[in-house]
């Protein structure tokens, strides 16, 4: 049995402490210890993106990060996208454009799409498709997801002006 360590981290703006075995991945820590089940496991090997989070602002798969590595870091999950109860424009556009069917990949897509728009507010369709290539969706054929991201970019840019 791996030794447990105490991890102190910031999750969606709140300071969170948990103890986890050293070989536990952050995905499991977030789901089972912090209670954020919006972070999904689709593969556990970094191939589907359903567990996407940002770690110190960097988009990562939480299944490929150890819980212990999160010590002293700043984490954002899908649960942290909403501000003061207001949906983030990406969240609203995903609903408006029917960009989700089963919805299990949606949290990962939202976190990845936000990371993209933070970095590149005006992505082309091709840039969107490549930036989201690490997020698998089996329901939509991606069509409405890409359209929702395009619409979000437009709205965010309008708000910035």
């Amino acid at each position: 049995m791996s030794e447990a360590v105490l991890v102190s981290t910031t999750v969606n703006g709140d300071v969170v402490e948990f103890a986890c075995p050293t070989d536990e991945v952050l995905l499991d820590s977030l789901r089972d210890r912090v209670g954020l089940t919006g972070v999904k496991e689709g593969c556990g090997t970094g191939d589907c993106g359903a567990c996407s989070i940002t770690l110190d602002g960097q988009l990562v798969c939480s299944c490929l990060v150890l819980g212990v590595e999160a010590d002293g870091r700043d984490i954002t999950t899908v649960e942290g996208l909403t501000e003061d109860g207001e949906l983030h424009p990406l969240q609203q556009k995903f609903i408006d454009h029917a960009a989700l069917q089963c919805g299990v990949c949606t949290p990962g897509f939202l976190v990845a799409a936000k990371a993209l728009l933070d970095r590149n507010p005006n992505p082309t369709e091709t840039e969107i498709r490549y930036a989201l290539a690490g997020n698998l969706c089996r329901c939509t054929g991606y069509d409405k997801i890409v359209r929702a991201v395009q619409a979000s970019a437009k709205e965010l840019n309008k708000a910035r002006r």
Binding site: T37, G38, K40, E41, T77, V78, Q91, I95, L100
Partner: peptide, 21 residues
């Protein structure tokens, strides 16, 4: 018509509970 789905907000905020949740 094209209405917003009733489970939409739950699914974009991570609140929707799936098999493992």
């Amino acid at each position: 018509n094209r209405f917003a789905r009733p489970d939409g907000v739950d699914k974009v905020t991570g609140r929707a509970r799936y098999g493992a949740d």
